[in-house]
Write a protein that binds this DNA or RNA. Sequence first.
DNA 1: GCTCCCAAATTCCTATAGGATCTACGATCA
DNA 2: TGATCGTAGATCCTATAGGAATTTGGGAGC
Lengths: 237, 237
Amino acid sequence: MAAVQTTSVGSPFGSVNAPRRSVLADEIYEILKSKLMDNVVEPGARLSIDGLSRDLKVSATPIREALARLESDGLVTKKAHHGYTAAPLIDARTFEELFRMRLLLEPACASWAAQVATPRQITGMEDLIAEMKPPLSGDGYESYKAFASQDAAFHVALATATGVGLMVETLERLRPHAQLYRLYYTIGIADDTMREHERVLEAVTRRDEAGAAQAMSAHLTASRARLAGALGQPETD
Amino acid sequence: MAAVQTTSVGSPFGSVNAPRRSVLADEIYEILKSKLMDNVVEPGARLSIDGLSRDLKVSATPIREALARLESDGLVTKKAHHGYTAAPLIDARTFEELFRMRLLLEPACASWAAQVATPRQITGMEDLIAEMKPPLSGDGYESYKAFASQDAAFHVALATATGVGLMVETLERLRPHAQLYRLYYTIGIADDTMREHERVLEAVTRRDEAGAAQAMSAHLTASRARLAGALGQPETD
DNA sequence: GCTCCCAAATTCCTATAGGATCTACGATCA
DNA sequence: TGATCGTAGATCCTATAGGAATTTGGGAGC
């Protein structure tokens, strides 16, 4: 490795000529996390250390380190002497557990946000809702993924507006949207999500804690009902 | 490394002559996790990869991997080119957040357990309460740690009795007792904890969901009040 | 006495090498 | 024909080596 450490053309990480501010293991971690969250790496797929090392043109050391972190994140599973596997697709039990936890956490989250959200945060959430673009009938997979990402962004912004870091961490750890977005594609998207977000935000904006909680409950209950139909169906993509 | 891989006398992991069933990195992870949870490694302490490598008589590779996992677990923090540091002691803000999250999660947890706990699970929790031994005045640090461990065990058993794996994971992720037990030592222990556990369990046993939730709320509120006094005080050990 | 600079030591980070383990395939035997 | 065994190749796991980055200590200058 050259003494001037730049991420130059030809390196595994694109062509930005900038001094390296992070270490390779961190960058590998982000790349792999992104691929896992986006399901570029299919749930259940083998992740070969040597294969990734060849693909990304780095040694196994940062790969191992990144995979170790991702294991603790719950995004991959490891079996000794067998290697790593992407965490499996959500099953019916986990789906129910996930919504059960969300129905416990997120109405409270909305209620807390109704107490303390700043006008700036509220405006930010309005922007997020305005930017949501439900996929049109016949749109490709990517637009469903983008919509799920926008959906997630609203929920994260709401959690952030509570000012309770542990709430943000707890919800992020559940990774609802990364787990659910493939189900969106299967059953299509209704416009209801955006309207439901708006109702949550309206209650937050008028500092109506109970209303915010109730609106979030309604959103999640409806979301669960919408997605549940997709659980038993094979992928259509 | 010999073809017959045994953890023989003289290896870093004690003197049990048994075939190796796990890999070194996993074992290092458990050792370090234990030291961090038990505060054998002080909060805020540097964790030198080379130092640990020398101490544990293994190469840096499994150390790095174990530390990477522990980073994602939230037990250590890493700064590029500086290395790893044990996560700091709980501060007042985190303390408040922690109880806020617990007051959201654990009453619901108790309520769910009241719905579905098996008689066997209830008996198990009774045993856990019976085994709790509050430290006597003048007892050493270790008995406080043991009590905190018993305290934690009851909460974990209750979460397990809900049958909701995500609830168990979510509470484990918060690691309340590992974070709080040093505060127990500072302010001493009242007998109230055991009585409060008993009240929770009585409500669970008679399937009183609301009663279980209320008893858990009361327990956590009292626990918070008991421990809050210790937060601003310097360590006395 | 304080500050700055430089060199040496230490530590972090990654690549490489080698051994252990697993998997797949072909050959042999009953 | 099916089961078993052996071998080769692939992959996982750990140790070691070397370079990069940071820290530490000592000396010089103000």
